[in-house]
Design a protein around this nucleic acid. Structure first.
Lengths: 154, 154
DNA sequence: TCTATAATGTTATATTATTACATAACCGCA
DNA sequence: TGCGGTTATGTAATAATATAACATTATAGA
């Protein structure tokens, strides 16, 4: 994720996908929602609610409920995730296909990578079933160093 | 965990263990620290910082820093864990042996069970190594229904 | 155009947590 | 025993995160 990539493309893709999903569901992808999603996607890190608030500026007389409602909408529709351990929000890198996802959070560059499926989900499922626990929602956030930052620090 | 168990024993054991750990480390298990740990262990749910604050009462003129500092101490020494998805704190059910633990949180009875080791930890390790990610700390919190609440709702 | 609904604005406040500095308790040692 | 450094706690102020309740505006469909 580090280094040069045409990040404008990431943003554009996220917006296009969001647009499509809202269309399919008969939901309105309003200016405000688009703007907040763009801000969240400004980089591959996580965004804090009050920073989004500040950066809305302009036409948007942004008060907290404005941004929290928008975040709720985006979360409900799988377009962003909340990172509980950071009280921050990241764009979902593959809406609609994000069951059992988890997050690798680099404490050096602050980038957050969303991961899905894999053997981790399977291990969680079988653990829960052994315990006779019926999971509704899983928070799995792993903080550490990403490969690029590990390389860079050598 | 539900139903009848001599919970006083849980509290007592937690306090005794904490005492021993502090002794071994040359740390002071002060009245305040003991009192906060007791309050956290008052049940098998999680405790909110400001509730602890209220319940300290008495001799302790409790202001927020008092309780947050105490929680920090208890966390640093593995005696309590923070549940990020709840902004709440639980007693550690096996201090010193709590690497790679995770939490099953019942949304019906609010009890939190701490689980350790197992294949989940292994799956996480191998996933991280595949991604060349070096984990420092993992937040794994699973919210759902525990076996007793599932039974009870049938 | 009218109307119902959804979205956003606005004010106030709740909840969670930290900073910074003052005081007190404790521990080792002269 | 008392001195002095360190650790722990007290206190005031405020920062950071989030929600409740109600007013207004925009939108889509009849």
């Amino acid at each position: 994720m580090h280094g040069n990539h045409q990040h404008a493309h990431c943003i554009e893709e996220a917006i296009t996908t969001a647009n499509r999903i809202c269309d399919e569901r008969g939901l309105r992808f309003t200016d405000l929602r688009r703007r907040v999603l763009e801000l969240i996607w400004e980089n591959h890190g996580s965004a804090k609610a009050y920073d989004l608030l500040e950066n809305l500026g302009g036409d948007y007389s942004a008060k907290p409920p404005t941004v929290y409602r928008t975040l709720d909408f985006l979360q409900e529709n799988g377009l962003v995730h909340k990172i509980n351990s950071l009280n921050a929000y990241v764009g979902c890198s593959h809406p609609l296909k994000h069951k059992d996802c988890f997050f690798l959070i680099c404490s050096a560059c602050n980038e957050v990578e969303e991961c899905c499926g894999s053997s981790v989900a399977e291990a969680l499922r079988s653990m829960a079933s052994e315990q006779n626990f019926r999971p509704d929602h899983t928070t799995l956030e792993i903080e550490g160093r990403c490969v690029d930052c590990l390389k860079a620090s050598q």
